[in-house]
Design a protein around this nucleic acid. Structure first.
Length: 596
RNA sequence: GGUCUCAUAGCUCAACUGGAUAGAGCAACUGCCUUCUAAGCAGUAGGUUUCAGGUUCGAGUCCUGAUGGGAUCACCA
């Protein structure tokens, strides 16, 4: 129970006693008081002056007086132009703090018995991961953790696109120009090696198109007629027919890629409970088409192709099975959705996929709901915006991508340089220091990508974007490290600060009160982040908390406090902040260091 | 062209879902380390929230239109 919930019943009572009007608790909304005014919570009375039949100012004053008299929570109030600003009593603050300090799972919800499947990452096996994948991976992982903290049981799954024409392109190029190269012989990660041949294919393919165009062929036709693309298509058919040699090559190259992905996943700290591969799922869904036909959800055209008519919902007609009886993308996706339900029996199913597929998922979810799937209502497309570079959009075929492995390495290097420049960590073993550089570098990168609202597209400037000062991951990590240092000293001095009754403190410093207020906001923020699938809410909160704590830290002295009780209180307050920072950052997939 | 989406300080992002004088960080400038970590803190400057209307006590937020970005509209995935 937070303060807001404790105050609103009194306001309800005020309306009933002063104006003989009954208000629903839910319609009483409080908001934080603006910094320029005294108080913590504000009640806006404009909408109620019709009920009170008095001016907003007068209404606010009357309610304020009522609260001050009837509720021990409110020690004072002021009214500015219809805004009722309430001042919370010091005892209430201390009680709020005592409650949250005692609760080691502060803000977390108990298990609610509901299951969620979060699908994210979902790479293609023809090229290494890039910056866009990083946003996807960090989002998927963080949302999963946030949902766990909100009481859900979460399964993280990865649906790997390991088949199709694009894979054949890499395979073909490797077959032609690879000379038996392996990741070992090339000294490259497997995913990078395969990516190299994907680029080679594209280059050679373009050459062929140019050549054909020079001979006078139409460009569009040349794209379809170039020998390389024909060969790739043929290879795909061979693969689908189970041709031994093709499958063996496919398997070998995919294994290289998986090894490369595993290494990247480990470095960026994400993991999965289950891997799905499209090579196993691409034939699924045909039985659902049959079922849909029988239920009258789908219809057949003369050429035998099967369609769904979604025009009633403002969507178009959508093909779900080709005339020759083969699948399209959405057929497979329906099948995979069912497969997930078989595997997990989930209440919610979340897919983390870029917003260029908004239309696709609108259609898919609509189909699943027409097909009466039990999980249909829980489907959610966590649609995130693209990551742009200053030069514009990233294009993998044109080599303008920011490679994930390179970026991670670069972040660590920068963290190292910056740390040494500041002259920190000089007394620390080099191996331990490397671990710290990784924590700080990854913290900067993850925080940078997660602090932005997932729905919005964002800009990444490799030169200047990822900073270590201000509104950044390292700023928050630094705050944690400072507190850790305080707590080490407290432990050394054997100061008891936990489970102590601080209610004898009569008056709080403004900065102490502000820190308690920030802490008290955590459960609401965590719940909101879960409801909106938005790690940015957690990121923003943790920053606000750290900022407020730093203010407190420079404002007062912990170990030179006026008396022991106050000193111990400040240690306990610091400890609670550290714990909340660690929890919040943990939900973002970011580690926090004991020193830095 | 149809549909969807975005536009806030020089730059990158917030704004508790309709509330007060729109906030942070970076960049610029000024202070603060003989006291717990200066990756910090305090301050100055920076805004007609793209534009034009509308809805109401009140609009960055809702509605209409315009302008400008982006996405999507395949028997591709």
């Amino acid at each position: 129970m937070n303060l807001e919930q404790e105050i609103t019943p009194y306001i309800q009572q005020a309306f009933s006693e002063l104006y003989q009007h009954s208000l629903e608790l839910q319609e009483i909304k409080l908001q934080p008081t603006r910094k320029d005014f005294e108080g913590t919570y504000t009640f806006v009375t404009f909408p109620y002056s019709r009920i009170s039949r008095k001016s907003p100012d007068q209404t606010a004053t009357e309610i304020g007086e009522f609260l001050k008299e009837k509720s021990a929570l409110i020690s004072d109030f002021n009214v500015v132009k219809g805004f009722l600003n309430m001042v919370i009593a010091e005892e209430a603050w201390l009680r709020v703090f005592a409650d949250l300090a005692r609760d080691s799972h502060w803000g977390q919800q108990p298990a609610n018995g509901k299951k969620v499947v979060v699908e994210y990452s979902s790479p293609n096996t023809n090229k290494p991961l890039h910056l866009g994948h990083l946003r996807n991976n960090f989002l998927g992982f963080s949302v999963s953790e946030i949902l766990k903290a909100n009481g859900y049981t979460v399964a993280m799954v990865n649906l790997v696109n390991d088949r199709g024409i694009h894979i054949c392109k890499s395979m073909l190029a490797y077959q032609k120009w690879g000379n038996g190269e392996t990741p070992e012989s090339a000294g490259m990660k497997g995913d990078h090696l395969i990516g190299k041949y994907y680029v080679i294919f594209d280059k050679e393919y373009k050459k062929q198109i140019e050549a054909l165009a020079e001979e006078g062929m139409d460009k569009e036709k040349a794209k379809a007629e170039a020998p390389l693309i024909k060969e790739a298509q043929q290879m795909l058919q061979q693969w689908e027919a189970g041709d031994e040699e093709t499958v063996a090559l496919w398997q070998k190259m995919n294994e290289w890629v998986y090894a490369g992905f595993d290494e990247t996943y480990r470095k960026i700290g994400v993991r999965f409970d289950k891997m799905y591969k499209e090579s196993n799922t691409y034939l699924l869904g045909k039985d659902i088409v049959e079922e849909g036909l029988q239920k009258g959800v789908f219809f057949k055209k003369e050429d035998g192709s099967v369609w769904a008519d979604l025009s009633a919902e403002g969507l178009d007609e959508k093909l779900v099975l080709r005339g020759d009886g083969t699948s399209v993308y959405i057929t497979q996706d329906m099948g995979t959705a069912d497969l997930k339900y078989q595997d997990f029996g989930m209440d919610k199913s979340i897919v983390v996929v870029g917003n260029e597929q908004d239309y696709h998922f609108k259609v898919l979810f609509s189909l699943l709901s027409k097909l009466d799937r039990p999980y249909a209502k829980g489907n959610y497309h966590l649609s995130y915006g693209m990551v742009d570079l200053p030069s514009g959009k990233m294009k993998s075929r044109e080599g303008t991508v920011v490679d994930a492995d390179d970026l991670v390495q670069e972040m660590q290097n920068t963290a190292k340089e910056y740390t040494q420049e500041l002259g920190k960590l000089e007394d620390i073993e080099s191996q331990e220091a490397e671990v710290l550089y990784n924590i700080i570098g990854m913290g900067a990168l993850k925080y940078y990508l997660l602090k932005v609202d997932p729905k919005k597209r964002m800009l990444f400037n490799p030169q200047e974007s990822v900073d270590f000062q201000g509104h950044t991951g390292p700023f928050i990590q630094y705050t944690f490290a400072r507190i850790s240092s305080l707590l080490r000293r407290a432990d050394q001095l054997e100061i008891p600060y936990q489970d102590v009754d601080y209610s004898a403190i009569k008056e709080l410093q403004a900065s102490e009160r502000e820190v308690i207020f920030q802490l008290s906001q955590w459960p609401d923020k965590l719940r909101l982040a879960g409801e909106e699938y938005a790690p940015s809410v957690v990121a923003q909160y943790v920053y606000d908390l750290a900022k407020e704590y730093n203010r407190f830290y420079t404002d007062v002295s912990v170990f030179n406090a006026e008396d022991e009780l106050r000193r111990n209180f400040r240690i306990a307050l610091s400890s609670a902040v550290a714990r909340t920072i660690r929890m919040g950052m943990g939900l973002l997939g970011i580690e926090v260091p004991e020193r830095m």
